[in-house]
Amino acid sequence: MSEVRIRPRQVLVLIIVFLVILMMVHRNGKRTCQGPDYLQTMYAQADTLPTIYAVTPTYTRPAQKAELTRLSHLFMLLPHLHWIIVEDANATSPLVTGLLERAGLEKRSTQLNIKTPPEFKLQGKDPNWIKPRGVEQRNLALTWLRNNVDTDRHSIVFFMDDDNSYSTELFAEMSKIERGRVGVWPVGLVGGLMVERPYLSEDQKQVIGFNAAWRPERPFPIDMAAFAISMDLFIRNPQALFSYEVQRGYQESEILRHLTTREKLQPLANACRDVLVWHTRTEKTKLTAEEALLKQGKRSDGGMEV
């Protein structure tokens, strides 16, 4: 049997081909996706899409880690999101820090904190309305954005509560928001309805009304999850902030009145026919057995983070 000899030059060629293939696999692995078309498009265009800054106020409670974990999976899937988590606390917590680290989101997140002042009833307003959560936290996030975002690059701000349910497709729609505009879409399971939605003009390009059943007289009778805002509007309107001095349900109108009008809203989500976000709420955690343990000086989660 004759001996097969491999020349050094052939070895070199084989090594080069192997390295080229390895580089291609590595590069494609970073930018490809086997999901639906809209998600594949987002990965292919990740470097040119506007950054979406999702602002999430949060506070300590039994379901906090579970709800933030659910949201973190969205950020792991979507390449152009930056998560701003603002804790209602005097200091940032190891729980949130650890969650971001385990999800690999340290470089695509910002962890802030500010404590909500003691609750009070708004004088001259609805006497049964207690000071709403999230005002201090969202305003701190807006301050951070105004001081840190590159104003030369198009970006979008979305107020993303931690107990809602979001489709990844919503963020593909959000990426279509034009500079100087506010994008809007339907929200499911809110305001006593199966869906709250904008009504559009015949050409489907302009918002002409809303189907809200709860306080439809509001300037913008929509949920916080129903819109996202081009960042340049916040730069041009530094007075745009959330406020305690408004009635219940008017926080959305309070921020939007500084930035846009109904006529300038940009309809998205298949001309506001697709529901891509739901106003879900986690059932209050029942811990009666845990309370019985505590009376005995015991805990089921001793030494564990739940």
Rank of each mutant, 00 (worst) to 15 (best):
S93W: 04
T151E: 12
N211W: 01
M76C: 10
H154Q: 10
P216D: 07
R179E: 13
T260I: 11
G35D: 13
R27M: 03
V86K: 08
Q137W: 00
P216I: 04
M231D: 01
C272Q: 03
Q123H: 07
L293E: 10
K125D: 11
V4K: 00
V187A: 04
T151G: 03
T92Q: 14
A91Y: 07
E252S: 15
G303Y: 07
G209A: 09
M42L: 04
E196Q: 13
G191W: 01
N164A: 14
L77P: 07
R9F: 00
W214S: 09
S167H: 08
Y38H: 02
L39C: 09
L142C: 13
S2I: 07
I177M: 00
F242S: 03
Y166R: 03
E305A: 13
G303W: 07
F120Y: 13
R153S: 01
L68F: 10
Q34I: 07
V195D: 12
A66R: 15
W129N: 14
N90A: 12
K65Y: 00
L276K: 05
H82M: 04
A91G: 03
R197A: 14
F120L: 12
T32W: 15
A226S: 15
A46G: 02
P79F: 00
E217Y: 09
Y53T: 06
D37L: 14
E283Q: 11
L71C: 02
N237A: 12
D161F: 05
F120N: 13
